[in-house]
Write a protein that binds this DNA or RNA. Sequence first.
DNA 1: CGGCTTTGACCAGCGC
DNA 2: GCGCTGGTCAAAGCCG
Length: 184
Amino acid sequence: MKIFEGFFPSSSTLPASSLSLNTPSSLGYGEFQGGKVNGVPGLMVEMEVPDSLNVHDISQNKSFPESNSLAGNESEVKSGKKNGDKKIRKPRYAFQTRSQVDILDDGYRWRKYGQKAVKNNKFPRSYYRCTHQGCSVKKQVQRLTKDEGVVVTTYEGMHSHPIQKSNDNFEHILSQMQIYATSF
DNA sequence: CGGCTTTGACCAGCGC
DNA sequence: GCGCTGGTCAAAGCCG
């Protein structure tokens, strides 16, 4: 089971037993995007779609009538737009979790660098950056107005370094959250 | 004292 | 062109 593969490189050490708390699937984005998340049961979303494919479409499809504030549907990463060429959007991966706490401590160290109020959402969105040297992975966390028990975490980029904390902690997280399976 | 959070300002993209 | 919105910066403050 590799739900968090990529985000948690060292996940191989994760207790598989915990992960089975309720199978895969975080979001049904895959199918909505036309591309099936090959075999793998709904890992997470990949939003590198150039043209705005509104994320909230699926939300409506599923059980989130007005969670369109979700990932907004991005704007681009304005890090390297020099040659006026194609705007490179780093792929983003989002998943929702039911959790009491906003900060899912996934083992990495994050430094908050911003917080914004988002439209259609009474909760602010928080922006975090991985503090590991040379690692520029970002993530944003926001809670749904609709269902404040749901926390949406959007990752941008991949960690290329090992987790800095004990994985035992991860079990703790898993016990706190419950992957939000929308249609299974 | 170092690392992190807070918070307002700033900036770029987008729609009207 | 203007205003709105999302994303980031950075100064100041907080805390261990």
